[in-house]
Design a binder for these strands. Structure first.
Lengths: 96, 96
DNA sequence: CTTGTATTTAGATATTTGCCTAAATATCAT
DNA sequence: ATGATATTTAGGCAAATATCTAAATACAAG
């Protein structure tokens, strides 16, 4: 599970900031955009990567699209990091 | 602490594989290189990023340079991930 | 069904990244 | 010092990434 996409997604500061925002609760794309200076189009691109990594989920609510954290994947990622430093348990395969 | 450099460093599969190798114990650049198909020059570049992120430490031993894991920074990174999903404790500042 | 608001997609550009080859540096052994 | 081995640095190129503007899509409201 998890893997390359998650780490790539986490590598960008803007995307980590988006995740931080979502800790406080779900927000629409527009609400999130209000916190950044880059265009909504650029943010939409970041949303896509986060979705691809399954770090966030979306739900349409009228004209808005509401983003929310997928905490389990974040937990998995943290676990993978910890696994990365345990004396090889049994060759964990992180789909490179 | 930790921050941007760590996440960037972890974003690459080759670098994560290097870290996995080092779980088993310190190894020289050459020993590590034996596990990869890319050139030693390319690996050296990856070593640099890992060092910059403080994920690995180096020690010269004769003509060899021995790399070892800096586990505390990995732990910090995992902790930052977990922090990323806790309901904002008090606005953690991850030097973007 | 036309207009307005929210969001995404498309296409272009600049920067960054990962890889290579060739050359440089460092240490060891003679 | 000379030559051999280990590693890094420099320079260049192709692919990936982050950003933008402009256009397209989705929904809601008249």
């Amino acid at each position: 599970m998890a893997g390359q996409h998650v780490f790539k997604a986490l590598a960008d500061p803007t995307r980590r900031d988006i995740l931080k925002l979502l800790r406080a609760g779900s927000q629409s794309a527009g609400d999130i955009a209000a916190h950044f200076t880059i265009t909504k189009a650029s943010l939409s691109h970041h949303f896509n990567l986060l979705k691809h990594a399954d770090l966030v989920r979306t739900e349409r609510r009228g004209q808005h699209i509401v983003y929310s954290l997928n905490t389990s994947v974040m937990e998995d990622a943290a676990a993978m990091l910890m696994a990365l430093l345990a004396p090889q348990p049994e060759e964990i395969s992180d789909d490179t």
